[in-house]
Structures are given as structure tokens and as C-alpha cells.
Design a binder for these strands. Sequence first.
DNA 1: GATGAATGAGCTTTCATTCAT
DNA 2: CATGAATGAAAGCTCATTCAT
Lengths: 206, 206, 206, 206
Amino acid sequence: MNKKDKNINKRQQNKANNRSLIIDAGIKVFLEKGISNTTVRDIIRKTSLASGTFYNYFKSKEEVLIAALDDVAILIGQELRDQRVKANNLEEFVFFQVKPFFEFAQDHSDIFMILNSNLNDVQSFNIETPMMSLELEYLKEDVNKAIEKGILPRMDVDYFCAIMRYVTEGLALTFITKKNSKSNIDEAIKFCTSFIVSGVKANQNV
Amino acid sequence: MNKKDKNINKRQQNKANNRSLIIDAGIKVFLEKGISNTTVRDIIRKTSLASGTFYNYFKSKEEVLIAALDDVAILIGQELRDQRVKANNLEEFVFFQVKPFFEFAQDHSDIFMILNSNLNDVQSFNIETPMMSLELEYLKEDVNKAIEKGILPRMDVDYFCAIMRYVTEGLALTFITKKNSKSNIDEAIKFCTSFIVSGVKANQNV
Amino acid sequence: MNKKDKNINKRQQNKANNRSLIIDAGIKVFLEKGISNTTVRDIIRKTSLASGTFYNYFKSKEEVLIAALDDVAILIGQELRDQRVKANNLEEFVFFQVKPFFEFAQDHSDIFMILNSNLNDVQSFNIETPMMSLELEYLKEDVNKAIEKGILPRMDVDYFCAIMRYVTEGLALTFITKKNSKSNIDEAIKFCTSFIVSGVKANQNV
Amino acid sequence: MNKKDKNINKRQQNKANNRSLIIDAGIKVFLEKGISNTTVRDIIRKTSLASGTFYNYFKSKEEVLIAALDDVAILIGQELRDQRVKANNLEEFVFFQVKPFFEFAQDHSDIFMILNSNLNDVQSFNIETPMMSLELEYLKEDVNKAIEKGILPRMDVDYFCAIMRYVTEGLALTFITKKNSKSNIDEAIKFCTSFIVSGVKANQNV
DNA sequence: GATGAATGAGCTTTCATTCAT
DNA sequence: CATGAATGAAAGCTCATTCAT
């Protein structure tokens, strides 16, 4: 490797590094102050970089958020969709949603907390997030298909999707904020799944 | 009624009217942009009033929000607490929470939507809201008492409260955003109650 | 006196009364906050009157100040001028200025303090005040005349006038702010006069 | 000097230059309108800079004033205190105060004029200024000590300090505003000193 | 590509003043 | 003439964004 190549390499490393610095700083500030109360200045102040440098990497704080979600949330959004089409029955359908969601919440709790506390802001720019993926349109479509196939029982799709979303999100949040974590993730997943399933079964005629 | 009284009356009417104009404008903007993205100017621009006039009525946008909640949210928060202590069993406990909450969501859907989308901001100034009341500390306390009395089954209180909160809020939101409202409120309440109750019963050993 | 006359009388009394209320309030606020930091609102808040009423009597806070000075300061300004032309020698010239000035400072200490602390502002609108009257142009003229007549010794007029002004004002201020007022006004006047006279005599050749 | 160094240098020069522009503009406006009537916008309007730029340098107009005083007023305040403790008799005590004060007034007449016209405002933020140093507390203390040591005659300390302050300030102001400056500074200092000294000597029994 | 000062739009807030009542 | 709400100009200040260096 000659000198020029080394320099180029160094530069690219530095570039990647600065990008990461900004994203990490962004996550911290988003958590502390919420998305809409965060300013570009807040983010850049948490780094050692100059304010102008920010704009070499991002156009706005929203782009920082999107970048923070990118690696993580996109993948998990896709996984949720991939998983649920493999389900053969109600139990599997629910479990295949709940399990990856809880794992995501545990492994990327910062991101999860930001999304959970700032749904309003997140919705205003159209990013695919797990929250969104669990939501209305995509899920509804798949649920309808599954009903047609006889995999899910006939029921009010809107309410079922709402249940899926809010129970899973709510319990996941409760799970990761529980300090006395004697409860482990498998139990939490099991409880969440079981709760939804039994609730649905007991109310099929609605 | 003499002339002076008429004058006073006209003025007071105008004052009350302007106050309402501002509150209504505030509700609209809060709904559109979220609380923290709303500026005083946004609100006043939605009225025909001058900027300075805003400060004759409110010190800040937060005061507008509080005024919008007043009468409504405060009372319903209290009612939720009053009702649940009257419950004699799980069904009643859940039903007594769900019913007034859905009714509030239906009757004051604007306020409900604002609260639902801006929980973060609402929490930062200490207002009693139904959301808050359904939440953590107060509810937990009452649930614990009810368990002691044998009214509620032994169960993980954190998860139960999470279920209560997220299922009720989520279904209420789904209920009021359903445009094709063939479903009526009583059915919605019944479904929500039944869902929670049967879920809890099927998972009592957790 | 018939009813109509009574009403008119009452109204005029009320009018005079409101005027006084505003002036008194103005003096208080000017003392507390200084002229330029005082707002019309500050003044009107100190009364029981409505803000609009202010403008039935005065166009601005400056007019309130002028009114506060009117009765008092104008007269004393005139007296200073009247007195000094009667002087037959240096001692009398100084004494005839110092005496009424100290008496004014004592009898109208509020006004005196306001003038003293806000010379800058007072100068910007052209009011005749004792401070101003002791000053430059008028005094200089009379001093020059007195020198021509042989009543005052030949000396630098600018410096003499400065001495007259600053010593008299400074000692008057010291006199009225001295809490342990064992010193009485006659002694203070005597000291001030004597100080100026002996200083001038010792430096006639300048 | 390489390119980077040049850049940095150019920027720092520009920064220093802008800072000076603002300070100079501030001094002008303070002189024209007085401190409390001056707004940040007044100052910035006197420059070619944008409003936001002001806040890159100063937090408030007061900081501009402090910056304008820096180096100059602080030092001279200290000098006044240092000098007077070296005095061996009344003449020296007075002379050691008057001389540096006149020199300061001559060399920094803008600053002197601002201080002189805005004592009220200057006092409200606690900056050491020569005016302050010539004033009440510090001076009084030193005068009392000097009397104990037999360096100054027994006399009313309040009146003596008032004389010191008002005569020196008043004559210094007169000196620098005299356009026909045939009078030189040494004569002015001599006159001022002599006036105070002879006045004090002639009135020792007060 | 990094820097950070300059910019100016836009926000919150106050206030003198007007004017319908 | 008294009232006090409405007005809008103008102040202080922040911030996203640009751009010379």
C-alpha cells in the first residue's frame, strides 16, 4: 500500500468516524431532550467538531435520526414482515412479531426509547421503523391475507392490529425499564404472546 | 339593564370570546404540529388577533394547553381513581377504567389526540391527565390494594398496569380514528374490557 | 350652589386628584428605578387608575416629571437667579446661591434625588431645573457681569461655575443622605459657602 | 508562515476588528443616549454587522461597556488607591488623587464622559471605576486611617470625601469640555488641588 | 474536508398608545 | 372622563445555515 492509498484510507476512516461521533451524540441528545427540543447545536456541542462540519454529513437533525435508525430499525422492520408470513397459526403469528420486537428493544434500548417517546415527530418524516411496521397498513394487509388463508381467525382487523402494536410496545417498554430484572426476556416474550393470544381467542366473535 | 351594564357585558363577552378563539386555535395547532413544535405565533396566526393580545390571556403556549385541559381532563382523572376503588372483582375493575376513558376519548377527541401524541411534553409540566392517571404510580397503588383485598388476582403489577394503560389507550385511539364507525362505543368498551380480563385470567400464574 | 355646579366642582376635584395621584406615583417610581428605566405602566400600576386614564393627563412619563418639577423647581430656579444679582460681594454671591439650594434639597428631597441621579435624562428634555440653573450659561453670564461690576474677583469663570455647581450639589446630597443628622442645615450651608469662598480667595490668580 | 497560519491570523484579525467595531459603536451610543436608553440594536446598527453577530462577542450591552472600561478604568481605580496611601500630608493626599484622575479624564475622555453621565447605571453592575474609587466607602476608609496617622487634619469625613469627589469630577469635566484649551492639564490639576486644600485648611474646625 | 464566525429570519415578550365601550 | 383590552412596533435573543479561510 503506497502513501497515497494510506492517506485516502485514513481520510475515509476519519470520515466514518466523524459520522459516528455525530450519530452517537444525536442519540444521546434525542434521549435527553426529545427530538423536537433538540437543536443541531445541541448535537454538535456533544462532539469535538465544528458546527459547519455537521453539514458535511447531514442536512438536518432528522437525517441524524434516520441514520441512527438505519442499520438497526430498517432491518428489524423487514424481519417483522418476513417472520409473520411464515406463521401457521395465531400463536406463531403473534410470537414471530413479539420475539424480534423484544429483542430489538433490549439490544437497542436507546433507539427504542427515542422512538417510543417521540412517535409524533418520527411519524412526521416517513421513516420505516419497527413501531411503524407493527402498525396500520403493512400489518393490516398481512393480517387480512392470513385471515383469508385461515391462519388467523376472523376478527376486527383494526382492533387486532391495535392490540398487537400497543401491547407489544407497552410491555417491551415495561420490560426494559424494570430495574429489578429478575424477569428475563423469554418470560416477557412468553407472557406478551400468551396475553395477546388468549385475549384474541376469548373474543373471536367481535 | 342600564348602559354601563351593557358595556361591561359586551366587553366580558368579547374577552371570553377571544379566550376561546385562542384556546381553539391552540388545540388545532397542537394537533397539527405537536406541542413542542408549536409557537405562540403559530397559535396567534390562526386567530385574527394581534400578537400582543395573546399575552393578555396567557403567559405561554403551555397555559393555553392547560386551559384546554381544564374542566375536562382534571375531572376525568379524578373519576378514574374514584371508580376503580368501587370495584368488587377483576371485570368491574377493568370496566370502571375503560368505560369513562372511552367516553372521554369520544367526547373530547381533540384533547385526547393531543395528549396521546404528546405524552412526553405533557409530563414535563405536572398536569393531572387521564393518561397520567391510568399510569404508573397511582394505578399501581390501587392495584396493589385491590390484590390485598382479594379483588384482583395475584399477578405482576407492572405488567398488568402496562396492559391496562396501553390496551385502553391504544383501543380508544383506534376507536375514535375509525371513520367507518359502524362499531359503537359500547361494543368497543366491551371488547376492550373483555380482552384485558380474559388475557389476565389466562395468564394468572405469571 | 345648584346640583350642576356641585357636579362640575366634584369633577374638577377628581381631575386634580387623579393628576396628583399620577405625579406622586411617578416620583416614587423615578426614585426607585431611575427615569429611563421607568415605564408608563410602572407609574400607572402604582395608582388605582386605568392605563388609558394616564393619557387624559399626560402624554408621556417625561410630562409627569416636568409636572413634578413645575411647582417646585421652576420657582427655585428663578430664585437663584434673582438672589445672585443682589449680591454685593463674593461671600454674598455664594451664600445667596447655596442657601436656597440647600433649602430646596431639604424640602423637596425626592425631587432633588431624582434630578441628581438622572441628570443625563433630565438634560435631554429641556427643563429648567435648579441643577441646570446653577449651570453653565445663565450662571456664567451673571458671574461675568458681577466681575465687571467688581463684585466678584477676576478669575476663570468656567472653573468658578463648575465649583459652584459641583460643590453645592455634592454637599447638598451629602447633607440630605447623612442619617446621623446631628449636623443642621445652617451649619451645612455655612460650611459649603465658606469652603467655596476660601477656595476662591486662595486661588484668585488662576 | 504557511497557509494555515495565515488563515488563522486573518480570522483572528477580523475577530479582533469586529470586537473593536462593536465596542467603538457602543461607546458612541452610550455617549449619545446614555447607557439605559441604549439598546443592543442601537449598537449593532452603528456597525455593518448583523444582529446575531453581536452575540458572538457579547451577551449584553453591559458587557460592551465593561469591555470598554477594561484595562483603562480598572487600572486607574487601583492607582488612585495605591497613590493616596503614600501621601505624607494634605497637599500630597489631594494631589495624588487629582493628578491621575485628570490624566485619565484627558486620555480617555469618552469613557470618562460615559461614566460621569451614567453613574447610576454603572453602579448597578459592580465594576470598579475611578468614580467609584473616589467615592464613599473606599475613600472614607483611607481618609479615616490618614486622620489617625496625623496625615490629614481632623474634619468631617463625609463632607471631605464629597468635596474630593465632586470638585475633582466637576473640574475634570470642565477641563475636558473646554474647547479653547489654552489651559493646560498641569494648571488644571494645580488649581483643583489648591482649591480643595485651601478650602479644607480654612474650614478645619468643622 | 474542517473550521467557526457571520448572517438574518423568526421567536418570545414588553410597552406606549389608541379607542370602543 | 374612565376604563382596560387590542394593537403592532420593536426589543432581546437563538438558531439553522452559509462560506471565506
